[in-house]
Each structure stands twice: as C-alpha cells, then as structure tokens.
Design a protein around this nucleic acid. Structure first.
Lengths: 125, 125
DNA sequence: CTGCATCCTATAGGATACTG
DNA sequence: CAGTATCCTATAGGATGCAG
C-alpha cells in the first residue's frame, strides 16, 4: 500500500481522532483548572468558587456535574445543618495529569516567549 | 508562612494560570487537529480542508490566521496561475508536541474505558 | 451554604453562495 | 484555487435573584 498522494496517513488520522475525543471531554475554560484546584484536596462548593476566582455558581455547578459524569469527581453530601457538600477527585482523575503537566510547561514557556518578544520590539506608537 | 486554611497553594495557582494561558491559545475544536494534519507536511488550503473533513472554509481560514499569529504556521504564497498557497508548520509549533502526545494517549485510553463500561452494563431499555 | 431559575450577551461554529 | 460575505444556530458563559 503506497502513499503516492499526500493523503493523511493512518497514524495521523488516528492521532487526530484521539485528540478530538480528549478535547471533547476536557473542553471549556474551567474543566482542567477545576481539576487542578481539587488536587489540593477535597473542597466545598464555595471554596472552589473562591479559588477559581471568576466562575459563577451556575457555571461551576454545570462543570462539576460534567466532571462527575466523566468520573473525575465524586460529590459527597453530609446531612449537617445546613447541608455540607464535598467534591473530591477520583483515582481516575489522575489519568489527566500528563495533560495538565504538558499544558503547564508549555503555558509557562509560551508566556516567557511572549514577554521576550515584547522587549525586543520598539514601543508601539 | 503557614498554610492553616485550605487556600490554594502558590504552586496550584501558578499551575492554574499557566494551564489557562495554554488553553487560551490552543482553544477551540480545530487548532490541535490542524497542527496534527500539518505535521504530515506542508499543505494547501483545500488539502487541509479535506483532511479535517468537517471544517468549512470560513472556519479554516480563521483558525489558520490565528495559528499564524501565534507563529505555529507560516503562509507561503506562490504567484502561479492560479495562485498557490502553502501552509507549513514553524519550528516553534513542535513545542506543542508533548501536549498532543498527552492528549492522544489519554483519548485512546479513555475511549477504551468507555467501551469497556458499556459492555459491563446490561442493555439499556 | 448549595445551588437552581431566569435572563442575557458574546462567541464558536456551520450552511450557502459568491469573488479575484 | 483560495478564500470572503452573509446569514444562521447552538453553546458558553455571565448577572442577578431566589429557594431548600
């Protein structure tokens, strides 16, 4: 089976669809930051909201539900008065650590790169 | 400096903001798949469109412009008739490879996990 | 405290048709 | 061939207020 035309190779197609799957599950602005926050330990709704700074309760609630569905997070309810709800990571959630590390490394380096570029340029206007 | 309350640690905050930076640049459905496609070699607009299957010219055009801005891609124009335009990856683009690899690995494993779960469950309704 | 209900805006992304 | 123009929908995400 020869590859005369410049079609995508099988390896490429496979990589593409796996990456798409991953992006589909981890999409959005908050999923990964949320997991990062919970890596510090189990947290209550309000605590999480404070750590993520700009997230509204509605969005946080939705994100937590989606993370629960994908089995990254478990929700534990304690029948105190008033009720206490604790969110904590599952063991499965640690499977995304390599992704988080890669993004973290890259984000740091990219930021440095941007800053350096700015310095090399004359002041604009 | 003691950590009595359950505030986010500095390490956590730093990780979170780096990851956010990365997500900001690599956001959307197509950026990473596009880079994966171009790893096979330089491509013309229409060739890329075919490989990404479902992308429309408008969206492809926009994504390519953004990748160019972030210096992942260069656009080369050849003044043939009709004009030929080639997109190719820059050396800098390879800095995202660890991210792509991590997502690819995880996407594969996650898919397997889902399939296995399905098998273990009785048929729904 | 832990969210949900409601309303709203902005953006992503798609369909279709068209131009140099 | 390599896009642009126009129009459209769906979704993300935010603001505010309220309920158990």
């Amino acid at each position: 089976m020869q590859q005369t035309k410049r079609n995508g190779t099988e390896a490429c197609k496979s990589a593409m669809s796996s990456v798409k799957d991953a992006l589909y599950v981890l999409n959005g602005k908050w999923k990964l930051p949320l997991i990062i926050a919970l890596r510090e330990g189990p947290r209550r709704f309000n605590e999480i909201q404070k750590e993520l700074v700009d997230i509204t309760p509605k969005v946080l609630s939705k994100e937590l539900r989606e993370l629960e569905l994908n089995e990254f997070v478990v929700r534990k309810v304690y029948h105190t008065v008033p009720v206490t709800v604790i969110y904590e990571l599952t063991p499965y959630s640690s499977s995304v650590s390599p992704i988080i590390e890669a993004l973290k490394e890259w984000g740091e380096q990219h930021r440095e790169r941007i800053v350096k570029h700015r310095k090399e340029e004359p002041v604009t206007a």
